[in-house]
Design a protein around this nucleic acid. Structure first.
Lengths: 124, 124
DNA sequence: CGCCTGGTTCGACATGTGTCAACATAGATG
DNA sequence: CATCTATGTTGACACATGTCGAACCAGGCG
């Protein structure tokens, strides 16, 4: 394996979690890779989405219902809109349980993005 | 210290490279933190910028002149525009050397973003 | 000095995006 | 079934953003 303990907090086979792209520093991205990766970054490129995502990610059990996190200074439809965006970007998944809808983070995508930003482990 | 060897590829005092925010998973972001972090993510949230950034980052010596990376399918003014955005976001720095202008990556910012995406090292 | 090449800035335009109010839907509960 | 609460969807609108061509600045060179 190329890099052994870069993100030891995820799956053991941490090489498999990045079906998207190599580290940004490894070689110039192709148009397709850039398109894919940019979609994820763009999803986190909004303050409200970032707060929502962080709220879900840091919530107990890695999941939270909308009612728990919708206090970010915008109207409820806007919250819903942003959560949808995050879902479309593959960063969150949602599940309805009775009255409430719970969102949870997709850890593999987080890890993939983290690896993208890794300084090229050329020497390792 | 809270997290000892999350991104061992950077400076030894890797805690100092993130003057921005804690990991997304540690606690809900404040409005200010989200604003700051979103600015960086947004900068990488465009395919063209991502290609340019990757081209610079992966170039020999971590720097490249515009002429080396401007082959991304958009006009040259547009390239310049995106490079400016990346510079404003703190991801790149530029320096004129004779005829050419060289861009290089700001590794500390890369590392900071990587840490942001770290899965909360709660257990560690 | 005049000109050429590399790069940035300007002005304009089309498109994308964040936001809200109003309406619609899904379950729970009486 | 009536109704209430929790979410999502729609339509509209202001604003930001990506893009280009044209004009402009900076160095090197004859």
């Amino acid at each position: 394996m190329s890099n052994t303990k870069v993100l030891p907090l995820v799956e053991p086979d941490s090489d498999a979690v990045a079906p998207c792209c190599p580290p940004l520093t490894e070689r110039p991205f192709t148009a397709d890779e850039a398109e894919t990766a940019a979609r994820m970054f763009k999803a986190l490129g909004d303050p409200v989405r970032l707060r929502l995502f962080s709220a879900v990610a840091s919530h107990e059990g890695g999941e939270a219902c909308v009612c728990d996190i919708s206090d970010v200074g915008v109207s409820q439809p806007t919250v819903s809109h942003h959560l949808k965006k995050l879902k479309e970007a593959g960063l969150l998944t949602s599940e309805r349980r009775g009255t409430w809808v719970y969102y949870r983070v997709e850890p593999s995508v987080l890890a993939a993005m983290g690896k993208l930003l890794t300084i090229a482990p050329a020497a390792a």
